[in-house]
Design a protein around this nucleic acid. Structure first.
Lengths: 239, 239
DNA sequence: AGCGCCTTCTAACAAATGTTAATGCCCGGC
DNA sequence: GCCGGGCATTAACATTTGTTAGAAGGCGCT
């Protein structure tokens, strides 16, 4: 059941069978969320952390003027609120962007892992560090890239992350986001989001229809976005 | 010597004397960096992590067109590259924005802490999680706040973080950033950065001169920026 | 005091992005 | 098959932000 988690953690360093067993043992119950449902509410203090088995979710904050900003997209194999294990209080919400199948890991069992399994602890820590590295890349994209480049970068990132957990199909992947939702990822108005997607299409590097993105020219896409996957720490080495 | 680190980690949960001793034991040698010097180079694989004892530093990435974006500001008590302990390869550089006094912690000794001191490990992990929470807040600011609100938020954040490590003076703090550097924080052109600072001044919520920021109206500043310190996890509770 | 350099600040204009509104398309419910 | 609602797309116009250029201020150095 935890295959995608093994793929996610295992891309950085080898996972032993004992460690896999500890992860299985940390899981309590499973649940399904419908599109648009909150998986974790902002301000809550969960006593478990949520692992996505299938589906797409996102962290978000809402401002007083009603504006919403997604701060991350979460794919299968991601612990969407592993940080709440130590941060305690959620400072943001997490919403299902597609039907999501998740499983909950109890904080008490995660704590036991930190007491007894240092290597696995480091891998979980690393998982949150990669999260931070992705945040930094988003900050750079928002601050200093053109919007076209930003979107291209996002496509590259999602493709690579989904490939790790075997959710790509050739050079295509499913992206169940409306343009309004995408605008809340990039930080744009819907109208301009539409223009930017049109620009990427026009260049001919991607086709984008029916919520399916197909990369037509990976090399050029990478060039436009200056995408360098170093920040995803995909090298398998002792951690 | 590590007072500011104790203040930083200790704001989240109590630090025992044994833990403080472990931290002291992890430190190897000290060093000074001049303004503008790189403390850690992008692409390097450091075998130690750097703790700021005094001074201001920043993480940054540079794009091909020469644009630079800071992805975080680091104050005394911050481990600027604790994440490199597990990420291994630096995907960004770290530069001194003022004269910096730092001390290096060997990765082998940090690793020993993860093997032997679970609670201290969780506090160090937490430190990187707060880092991530700050990143998320920056993403929200870049994506959905007005530039004035973004700058106001930054002022609030820095004030609170500096207060924790006792680097404020009443409602003032020293911010040794040129407007060009500030523009690389917010993601603006220098000219527009100047306009935005002018706007904040005009509203009368801050005075800003000689690299010293004084908050004249905390309440209004907080209102403009919708600053809510929850994300900094300043509550002291078991972690 | 005078010089050179960096930084702040302004102006004028150009480009990017937001807003409002309208159109057409697709898809599910009846 | 028809209707209604959400979504994608486009247009026209407003606002924000960037660019280029230059003036003015501060500050260390000689």
């Amino acid at each position: 059941m935890l295959e995608s988690l093994y793929l996610n953690l295992g891309q950085h360093d080898a996972l032993s069978d004992a460690e896999k067993a500890l992860l299985v043992g940390a899981m309590t119950f499973e649940r399904h969320f419908a599109t648009g449902q909150d998986i974790v509410a902002s301000g809550s203090r969960p006593t478990y952390s949520t692992l996505i088995l299938d589906g797409l979710a996102a962290r978000y904050k809402v401002l007083e003027n009603g504006g919403r900003q997604f701060t991350s997209l979460q794919v299968p194999g991601d612990f969407v609120d592993l940080h709440a294990f130590l941060l305690k209080t959620m400072d943001h919400g997490i919403v299902a962007l597609s039907p999501c199948h998740v499983v909950f890991a109890d904080h008490s069992r995660l704590r036991a892992i930190t007491e007894e399994a240092p290597h696995l602890t480091r891998l979980l820590w690393l998982d949150t560090l990669v999260d931070g590295a992705i945040h930094r890349e988003w900050i750079v994209a928002m601050g200093r890239r053109s919007k076209t480049s930003h979107l291209a970068h996002l496509v590259c990132e999602l493709f690579v992350r989904l490939q790790v957990v075997q959710r790509t199909n050739g050079m295509s992947f499913h992206l169940p986001l409306s343009q309004a939702e995408l605008a809340d990822v990039i930080g744009l108005s819907v109208v301009h989001m539409n223009r930017v997607i049109g620009a990427l299409r026009k260049i001919g590097v991607v086709s984008w229809a029916n919520h399916t993105v197909t990369i037509l020219d990976w090399h050029k896409l990478q060039e436009i976005s200056e995408f360098d996957p170093t920040y995803l720490s995909m090298a398998r080495e002792p951690r």
